[in-house]
């Protein structure tokens, strides 16, 4: 059962967005999220819908996969829409009146607007994790945070990146180990699947303690191995892989920029 835990959601389809620089993707994602919030009119939002649909098409990842991510936040979407439904101005005409609550056409419009906005935000955010491997994400974060070195945080940036790399490296190893320990405890008669929640949590203790101990041992051995590989806290360290902007990056930037300008223009004109 533990094997089902996947780290990251990367799906390989060899699309242009997959090839793009992780730094570019991350910065543009932040920009797009801001733009979706900026789009105040229905026209602006429809344009955002068009942009996000284009992103989905270009990634070559089926829409169904994207929609799966929506399931988890469905309650939030519903709640937001329902609350917004009651906040329309009464001038727009009353649609329904139940007891003291009135739903106006304006309210309905707001509800649909809000729901669509959240859906777009989630889909566009998923497109980053679907098209970028955890390693590339780590690389991108390290590079994006690198300006921090000018305020004396150089080793902090490097340490953070290394921590993320090691965490990613050890997730499958620890999952495997946890499975082994669970089987060993089951063989000794441990009951992990029945009983109340509190009983089940208690049953996890004999799994977590050996896992913790072995992790500490691993960490110690890893530290020694890193020392043997001349690690000295990242001072004077270089990188084999250099991130380089390619034509794909410039194309993606251009398209996003056009979309951004359009959203701002619509806001000004309307």
């Amino acid at each position: 059962m533990l094997r089902d835990i996947t780290f990251g959601q990367y799906i390989e389809t060899k699309s242009p967005i997959h090839k793009a620089d992780p730094r570019v993707k991350m910065v543009l994602l932040i920009l797009v999220v801001v733009l979706i919030f900026l789009a105040q009119s229905m026209y602006g939002l429809l344009l955002s819908l068009a942009f996000v649909s284009m992103v989905v098409l270009v990634t070559k990842i089926p829409l169904k996969t994207y929609l799966k991510n929506l399931k988890a936040v469905l309650p939030i979407i519903l709640l937001t829409s329902i609350i917004n439904m009651f906040y329309g101005d009464n001038d727009s005409g009353v649609l329904l009146e139940v007891w003291k609550l009135t739903i106006t056409y304006g309210g309905l419009y707001r509800a649909v607007f809000m729901a669509l906005r959240i859906v777009l935000l989630i889909i566009v955010s998923s497109s980053l994790t679907y098209t970028t491997t955890p390693n590339d994400l780590t690389d991108g974060i390290e590079h994006l945070l690198s300006p921090l070195k000018f305020i004396g945080l150089k080793s902090a940036v490097h340490t953070l990146a290394l921590m993320m790399t090691i965490a990613l490296r050890f997730i499958p190893t620890l999952v495997e180990e946890a499975e082994k320990i669970m089987n060993a405890q089951k063989a000794r008669g441990a009951d992990l699947e029945s009983g109340s929640i509190i009983e089940r949590i208690k049953a996890l203790i004999p799994i977590l303690i050996p896992l913790l101990i072995s992790s500490v041992r691993r960490a110690y051995e890893l530290a020694e191995a890193m020392e043997c590989r001349c690690y000295n806290g990242g001072e004077g360290k270089t990188r084999m892989k250099q991130l380089k902007l390619t034509s794909v990056d410039f194309k993606i930037m251009a398209v996003t920029l056009i979309y951004g300008v359009a959203v701002v223009l619509i806001n000004i004109i309307l």
């Binding site: 390693n135 890893l222 191995a225 590989r229």
Partner: peptide
């Protein structure tokens, strides 16, 4: 307990 990165070549580059 000796491998640092989750991609082979990146580990060798460490």
């Amino acid at each position: 307990n000796q491998l640092v990165a989750s991609v082979v070549e990146e580990d060798v580059a460490f």
